[in-house]
Amino acid sequence: MASYAPAGGALAQARKGVRSDQRAELLLGALACLVLALILGMIVFVFTKAWPSFSANGLAWFGTGGDVDQQLTDIFNSPANPKAYVYELRAWPLLYGTALTTGGAVLVGLVFSVLAAIFIVEFAPERLQRLLEPVVLLLAAVPSVVYGLIGILVVVPLVRDAFISEERKESVQFVVQLDGSSLAVAVLILTVMIVPIMIAIIVDALRAVPRQWTEGAAALGVNRWRVMWTISVRAVRPVIVAAAVLATARALGEAIMLSMVSGSKGFAPNPIDGITFLLEPTRPLAATIVDNREGLSAVPLGQTIYAFAAVLLISSVFLSFAGWYMKRRLRHVAIYGGAG
């Protein structure tokens, strides 16, 4: 339209354009501030709600002692009088369960996804590559409740029949019940859930490694595997860290699936038990929040659940910082965010 207008009009148009640019800048700035305010507001809100639980327990909140499920029941059954609210909670089994499931899944998933990404980028035949990449993206989009269903209908009974003998059950029967839903199944399915997104991210990064680098190495007579391992994977280390951070965040927040297959029991699996350790039930924080949603209207339980939410929120903030710091440390070899 501007091209048909006389010169003066074009100038006016241009000036108007500058002004609308400024307006857009202001608008976007305001939106960004709004997001920031929203996040801050959320953190403040969650902590205000959670405060009674933290202040009643002090640092012992994070400690061990007693049966955490019994403590949650007592909190739920608090009398109506606010002065008599029960808050006693030792949340260690839940924190430990979160760390075990998340850490286990991310570690296993990291190894698996780096190897799978190398295969897809470097070794898979063209046609397989064209098939694998959309399948990986599709898997990344499957809702977690579907994984939960498959877990409880297929994997849990399989694990029970294959690994849980009567002797194994009796060895721990006064402490905990083994029925197949366990730490191992939780880690397994969580790994399956987070691996696709990690593969997708790492594949993109490996593709972006400059060809001269890998070709240069190949020209020196290095084989494909060593080129991949010593050049490409090294170059994308910051991206691998980013993928791990993203996967950890997803694993931390996963609730429904873990509530279904982890055994949903506030129990800290004991590594001394050998293989039984993997078959013991546990329950991470996010799954605890989902499991107790029916009791939110009991005020002290609601505040305790907000305390769980606060811990998850802080963990993810720390996670972001840790990821950012590690990416900075690795910047000298990076193809993204610096020296590349």
């Binding site: 499920d69 019994q70 029967q173 905990v176 019940q177 949903s264 029991k265 039930p281 989902v290």
Partner: peptide, 26 residues
Amino acid sequence: LRVSSSASQKASNGLVQQTVRSNKNA
């Protein structure tokens, strides 16, 4: 009285039904 602390807790009736159906000791 209180339910044994080693019991496995389920978040819905359907999950209890499914677990009991598939586990002969439940």
